[in-house]
């Protein structure tokens, strides 16, 4: 444990993450609506030690009932449409939807049209667009901080 903590201490100092000036916080709920798992890896990295979304007051919450933002990855498949709509309906107002990655934005290679319900925009009102395939953790953090400023 001592070795791990010492490594963590070193990671922390090497990353030298600046303290954010802005105050406030947002709870994020992620839904994979048909992703390739790339966006999931990068979103996890964004909340990991090298980027640490939490220092901006941005944290992943377990339930849509506690969420301010619905982060949707992937083109929405026919099989995920219902679950996505239920998650959105469960959120308290005011609520925001962020489309994360090119598939969610409808500009990636999506697959067989008969299996895809549509891009996120066609299903839910999208407030924030985070482009990339997948967007790197830095990009994810930057866009989410924009939402914090709104």
């Amino acid at each position: 444990m001592f070795v791990l903590l010492r490594q963590l201490q070193r990671i922390r100092s090497e990353c030298a993450l600046p303290r954010p000036a802005r105050r406030g916080s947002l709870q994020l709920r992620h839904v994979d609506a048909g992703s390739c798992n790339g966006c999931e890896h990068e979103l996890q990295a964004a909340s990991g030690p090298a980027y640490d979304l939490a220092r901006f007051g941005l944290s992943i919450t377990a339930s849509p009932r506690h969420a301010d933002v619905l982060l949707v990855t992937g083109a929405v498949t026919t099989r995920m449409r219902g679950a996505l709509e239920i998650a959105y309906a469960a959120m308290p107002e005011p609520r925001r939807v962020a489309a994360l990655g090119d598939c969610a934005l409808g500009c990636g290679l999506l697959g067989d049209p008969s299996q895809i319900a549509g891009r996120v925009e066609e299903i839910l009102p999208v407030d924030l667009r985070i482009p990339g395939c997948p967007p790197d953790p830095e990009t994810i953090a930057r866009h989410l901080r924009e939402l914090l400023a709104r």
Binding site: A33, R79, M80, G111, D112, Q115, I116
Partner: peptide, 11 residues
């Protein structure tokens, strides 16, 4: 599973 079935093989 298959919630994220995108029909990629077919595509």
């Amino acid at each position: 599973l298959f919630h994220t079935h995108r029909g990629l093989e077919h595509a």
